[in-house]
Simulated scan of single mutants.
Amino acid sequence: MFKDIITGLQNGSVIPYLGAHALVGSTNKLTGEPIPADSNSLILAMNNGQPMAPKLMYEFPRAAMNQELKKGRSYVNKFLTKLYGETQWTPAPLHTWLASLNLPYLIDTNRDTHLQDAYASRPHTLVVGTARLGGTDYRFHLYHFDGAEGSSYKETTLEAVDTSLPVLFKPLGTPRPAANFIASDADYVDYITELMGGFGMPAYLKQYRRNKQYLLLGLPLNRDTERMILSDIIYDAAKPAGWAVIPDANDKEIRFCKKLGFEVINAEVKDLLAEIGIDAPSIRKPLSVAV
């Protein structure tokens, strides 16, 4: 099932697009707990392991908006920075394998640093989504990493960016090199609006993405936020657009994928990794929450 897709990944014609369950297998180095990444586990982690009201449990951006209104935007940013920037996690098997392929372009809608860590020994460009900025039309930051030992990210400009380097695109943010996150409803409204207007990603990536195929990995598509961001980031995709690896996809997900031109594969990340001899746990097991 996956052989042709893997070949496409290896030759750069298929672009990986990672969602929450792409992090399966990553655990807290101290406690062994899985990294919170999906909406439900993020809400629980943000609320000290306790469920919030049912209407807030519906989706992380809604819960984050509630906390922002009560405690300020900095509260949510500090939570995500501590979770992904200060807590030590084991590498996710999928990220390690993808990094070994030296891919030209990867899209990661999680907020962790796993891909950045995996690319820490090679030059690359980091594109980080931002929201609610003043003084600029753009909703992204560009960083250059030269791959030298001990080097750090340096912010760059559209005019100075080296377009020949591999690109890690983190549309929902990362704690490094500077903490920027798309988290609350207000963040999403601003970012998606500017993404639709063409200001959410660099022009050279919009050129590069034309007629490309995508492999959606670990990405549930049962919420509007994921669907809207996906639709805009892959605009001008090939026809068919690629494959969506979704275990037990519901009717809504299947209809959406058909509309965009994705073939739904009833599988999960561990099935893809098993094809190349890498073990990973199943997401069908209940996910516990890191505290």
Rank of each mutant, 00 (worst) to 15 (best):
Q207R: 02
V189A: 03
L158F: 12
T163G: 07
V161T: 10
Y191T: 01
S184C: 05
D190L: 01
L172I: 10
A203K: 15
E149P: 12
F199I: 02
L205A: 05
R176E: 14
S184A: 04
Q207A: 08
M228G: 00
L221A: 04
N222K: 12
A183N: 08
A160D: 14
V189C: 02
L205G: 02
L158Q: 02
V161R: 04
A237Q: 10
G218H: 03
Y153R: 02
R209P: 11
K154A: 15
S184W: 04
Y235Q: 12
M228S: 06
R223F: 01
S151W: 08
P171D: 08
L195R: 07
P202Q: 10
A238R: 06
D224N: 08
P166E: 14
K212M: 05
L165S: 12
N180L: 07
P202W: 06
R210I: 11
Q213C: 01
K154S: 15
A186W: 01
Y204H: 09
E226Y: 08
S151Q: 09
N211M: 11
F199E: 02
N222Y: 03
K212H: 05
Y214N: 05
N180V: 06
P177Q: 07
S184G: 07
G218N: 03
A237M: 06
K212V: 05
P171N: 05
P177K: 11
N180I: 01
S231L: 03
G218F: 01
F181S: 07
